[in-house]
Design a protein around this nucleic acid. Structure first.
Lengths: 130, 130
DNA sequence: GTCGCTGGTATCCATGAGGTAACTAAGTTC
DNA sequence: GAACTTAGTTACCTCATGGATACCAGCGAC
C-alpha cells in the first residue's frame, strides 16, 4: 500500500501532532477559541457565552489553551478581580481552519440527520425480519 | 454584547451542529476518515493503519460514521469474510476542512511545544519563589 | 477433527472527564 | 461587621469511554 501521501505523523500514536489534533476536538476548547474570535472577554462573560459550563471545567480548558500558547490571560489588579482572556496570534491562526469546520458542520446537519434516520429505519426493519 | 456574527447554533448546547462538530473531534473518527481518503479499505487493514485501536472501538467508530452517512460498509460474501469501508460523497466533503485542520496541527506543533515549555518553566519559577 | 483466517461480539474493568457544591481572597459598600 | 463582588480552588462523586481479554461463525486446508 502506498502511504506516501498519508499523514503519517498523525497516524503515529506517539506524534505530538496527534495530541494537538485531538485537543482541537476537545468538548470546550474549540468553542472557547471561537468565542474569543470577537476579542478579549472576561471569565464570567465567557461562562455566559458557552452555556452550562462549570467554572472548574472552564478554568481547566483555559489553562490548557494558555499553556499551548493559544490564548493569553491578563489579571487586572482590581477588586473585585478582573481577568481577560484573549487569542494570541497562534490562537487566531487556528480560527480559519476551525471556522471552515464549523461551517461544514452547520451546512451538513440536515444530510447527517437524514442519514441517521435512514440508518435507524433500516435497523428497525432488520429487527422485524428476525 | 453583539452576538449576531457568532455561531449561535454551535454555542447552543441543544443544537445538533454542536454534536456533529464534536463528533469530528472524536479520538478515532477523524483519523479513520483521513485514512479512507485513499479509497476503500478493509477492516483489518484499517486496524493496521490506525495503530493500537482495539476491534471493539474501531467497530464502534465505523458504525457511528456509517450511521451519519459518512462511510459505507460493503460485505462481500466470501470465506473468510471481506468487508470494505469507503467514504461517501458526504464523507469526502469533510476531507477538505479536516485536512486543513490537520495541516494546521502539523505546522504549529513546534510553536505549541515551545509555548508549553515556556509555560512550564514559568510555573516552576513561580513555585520556587513561593 | 482441528487449525487458521476474517470480522467481528460479549464481558468485565479502569481511567478520567466532567459535574456538584462549598469555600476563599480581598476590598467596597451598607 | 456583614454582605456582595469576581475568579477561581478544593473535595467529592458519577458515568461514559475506551481498553483487555476471550470468544464465535463458517469454510478451506491439512
Amino acid at each position: 500500500m502506498d502511504t506516501s501521501d498519508l499523514p503519517a505523523n498523525i497516524l503515529d500514536p506517539d506524534c505530538p501532532s496527534r495530541v494537538i489534533f485531538q485537543r482541537i476536538g476537545d468538548k470546550w476548547a474549540s468553542l472557547v477559541v471561537q468565542v474569543l474570535a470577537d476579542g478579549p472577554i472576561r471569565f464570567s462573560e465567557l461562562r455566559k457565552m458557552v452555556h452550562v459550563v462549570t467554572p472548574k471545567v472552564l478554568t481547566q480548558t483555559l489553562r490548557t489553551l494558555e499553556r499551548d500558547g493559544l490564548i493569553t490571560r491578563t489579571v487586572h489588579a482590581q477588586v473585585p478581580p478582573r481577568v481577560d482572556y484573549e487569542l494570541t496570534e497562534l490562537g487566531a491562526s487556528l480560527l480559519e481552519p476551525l471556522t471552515l469546520l464549523r461551517l461544514w458542520a452547520e451546512d451538513h446537519v440536515p444530510s447527517i440527520l437524514k442519514a441517521r434516520d435512514a440508518y435507524d429505519d433500516a435497523q428497525d426493519e432488520a429487527v422485524i425480519r428476525d
